[in-house]
C-alpha cells in the first residue's frame, strides 16, 4: 500500500516564532530576495506564518496560522499545467518538476492558498550562505515555479534508510524541516495511510479541518483551531 503523506497543524501550539520558515529556507535552498524585492511581494516562503489580529482594541488577540502547500488530492494547480511540471505522485504529493516547468505561472493563479512561488530572477546566495546549500535539493533557475514539497528529499531518504536497515518505515522516521524545527511541536507529519500514525489519529479527530475545505480541494494538511482564548 503506497504511503499517503499528511501534516497536522495545532494552532493552539503555534507561537508564530518563525523557526519553520527559517528551517524551510535552509533545507530547501530557497533564495532570499532582499528587502526591496520582498516588499514587492517576491519573497519565497514555502511556509509562512499568517498573522491575523482579531477583536476591537483594547481587546485584541493575535492569531497565527502556518500555511504551506496543502498537497491537495484535488489540486487545482495540477491540471492547468500544460507540461505536467505540476502533477500528482502516487504518495499523494503535488509534485513540481522544476526541469519541466516553463513558467506559465498558471498553477500559482489556480492555487487558492497562494503557496506557489516564482523565481523572478536567477537566485543568488550572499556569502557565506552559498556554502550551506543542501545537496539533496535542486537549485531552481529563473522562470521556474516552486513550492513546499513536504521535504520530499527527506521522505525518500527515510525510505531508503529503512530499506537499507531492512525494516518497515516507522512513524516519526521522517520529519520535514518545519516539523523538526518547531519548538512547540505544532506540526505533526506522518503517513496518513497508516491508521496508527500520530497524524492519522489527529486527522480522525472531529476538531480537525482543512483550510478552505469548501472549495473541494481535499487538502492533506489538517488544522486544529484554537480553543484557548489566551
Amino acid at each position: 500500500m503506497p504511503h499517503k503523506w499528511g501534516l497536522a497543524v495545532d494552532l493552539d501550539a503555534c507561537t508564530g516564532c518563525g523557526a519553520c520558515v527559517t528551517a524551510c529556507h535552509a533545507e530547501n535552498n530557497i533564495p532570499t530576495v532582499g528587502p526591496d524585492q520582498a516588499a514587492r511581494g517576491r519573497a519565497m516562503h514555502w511556509i509562512r506564518i499568517e498573522r491575523y489580529w482579531e477583536g476591537e482594541f483594547p481587546d485584541v488577540r493575535l492569531r497565527f496560522r502556518p500555511v504551506m502547500c496543502q498537497q491537495c488530492d484535488n489540486a487545482p494547480c495540477e491540471p492547468v499545467c500544460p507540461t505536467y511540471a505540476s502533477h500528482h505522485t502516487e504518495e499523494g504529493l503535488n509534485a513540481q518538476v522544476y526541469n519541466r516547468c516553463i513558467g506559465t505561472r498558471y498553477c500559482a493563479n489556480a492555487c487558492p492558498y497562494n503557496v506557489r512561488f516564482f523565481e523572478f530572477f536567477n537566485p543568488v546566495w550572499e556569502k557565506p550562505l552559498h556554502l550551506q546549500l543542501n545537496p539533496d535539493v535542486s537549485v531552481r533557475e529563473v522562470g521556474v515555479m516552486e513550492k513546499c514539497t513536504f521535504c520530499v528529499q527527506r521522505i525518500n531518504a527515510g525510505k531508503i534508510q529503512a530499506k537499507a536497515e531492512a525494516r518497515e518505515l516507522a512513524d516519526g522516521d521522517i520529519k520535514p524541516a518545519c516539523a523538526q524545527s518547531c519548538p512547540s511541536k505544532a506540526l505533526v507529519f506522518g503517513d496518513a495511510s497508516d491508521p496508527d500514525s500520530a497524524v492519522s489519529k489527529l486527522r480522525r479527530s472531529s476538531r480537525g479541518a482543512g483550510l478552505l475545505e469548501d472549495l473541494g480541494t481535499r487538502p492533506n494538511v489538517t488544522y486544529f483551531p484554537r480553543h484557548t482564548e489566551a
Binding site: P79, P82, R100, I102, G103, T104, F118, E119
Partner: peptide
C-alpha cells in the same frame, strides 16, 4: 513572452519527443 522560460515554449507543441512526454491536454493552455 510571458513565460518564465520562453526558450522552452516548444514544450506546448504536441510532438513525440524522445522522452515520450506530451503536453497535458487537460490544461487550458494546451
Amino acid at each position: 513572452i510571458h513565460l518564465g522560460r520562453p526558450w522552452l515554449a516548444f514544450w506546448l507543441f504536441p510532438y513525440p519527443s524522445e522522452r515520450g512526454i506530451w503536453p497535458n491536454f487537460r490544461s487550458p493552455l494546451a
